[in-house]
């Protein structure tokens, strides 16, 4: 599995190197977009000292953890939500006749390295945040755990987004609301949103487990919304549950696959 993925990823990297100008421009473009993200946080904190009750290093911590998780998931599995394009072009049929899992081929298709830049960027923000926070080891163990869980949760959302396109071939944008929307949502403390939304992203689409709940533990905070204390340890549970749903959805999708005309 991992070997096949690595091999195909390397292939796509070499293929995209065939168009160096395009590669350079895309890299610059993605750097600029992400710089704007960070600029937004800086602008907010030049006007106030807290955001939703959280100080700058704490917000940077939330941004950094969500950012790393999303960027890793996006690099490894982000292409899955472009399934409908591949179905329409007939490219998905070709993946189905090869002796490798269709999900894996779909995930690695057009693998691009410039997404690695995003990971680095988010990691730098996370590093700065940790420098300003002084988290004791008794709580810091949660940081790698929450990042891994975040990757699994975002990857599952990508997979579910892809799976729905077996049915809704013409609506890939619906899926983007959950993938990229989810990424933006988790960049800020959830206290800046309404409590109904927080409940929804805790219990329906478990985005709160990407960073919000475990971050409350790492930062040693009480839940400003008064949700039960044990939820902050529940990220692995949420990740496994969502991954299971994603796997079942993908399988059901493949079974219902209709291919195209010719």
């Amino acid at each position: 599995m991992v070997r096949t993925y690595a091999l195909l990823a390397w292939t796509w990297m070499r293929a995209s190197a065939q168009y160096p100008v395009s590669l350079a421009l895309l890299t610059l473009g993605s750097l600029a977009v992400n710089a704007l993200d960070i600029l937004a946080i800086w602008v907010i904190f030049s006007h106030t000292t807290t955001l939703g009750g959280f100080a700058l290093p704490e917000v940077m911590f939330l941004y950094g953890t969500a950012g790393v998780s999303f960027a890793v998931a996006d690099m490894l599995f982000g292409n899955v939500d472009r399934l409908s394009t591949h179905i329409r072009s007939g490219g998905f049929d070709i993946m189905l006749i090869r002796p490798a899992a269709a999900f894996l081929q779909m995930a690695v298709d057009r693998f691009n390295v410039q997404r690695f830049g995003r990971i680095t960027q988010a990691a730098v923000v996370l590093g700065l945040a940790l420098a300003g926070l002084e988290v004791p080891w008794s709580r810091a163990w949660m940081i790698p755990v929450m990042i891994v869980c975040g990757v699994v949760i975002f990857a599952s959302i990508f997979a579910i987004a892809g799976a729905t396109q077996f049915l809704l071939i013409n609506a890939p944008e619906v899926a983007n609301a959950f993938t990229y929307g989810g990424s933006s949502l988790t960049q800020y403390p959830l206290t800046v949103y309404g409590s109904e939304l927080v409940r929804a992203v805790t219990f329906v689409v478990p985005l709160a487990f990407v960073n919000w709940q475990p971050a409350l533990l790492v930062l040693g905070r009480d839940d400003p919304l008064g949700l039960p204390h044990w939820l902050r340890y529940a990220s692995p549970l949420a990740a496994v549950a969502l991954a299971t749903v994603a796997m079942l959805a993908w399988r059901a999708g493949i079974r219902r696959y209709r291919s195209t005309g010719s």
Partner: peptide, 12 residues
């Protein structure tokens, strides 16, 4: 083999 589309990698 599909005559109408290729299974090869376009840029390689």
């Amino acid at each position: 083999v599909f005559g109408q589309r290729t299974t090869l990698w376009w840029d390689l």
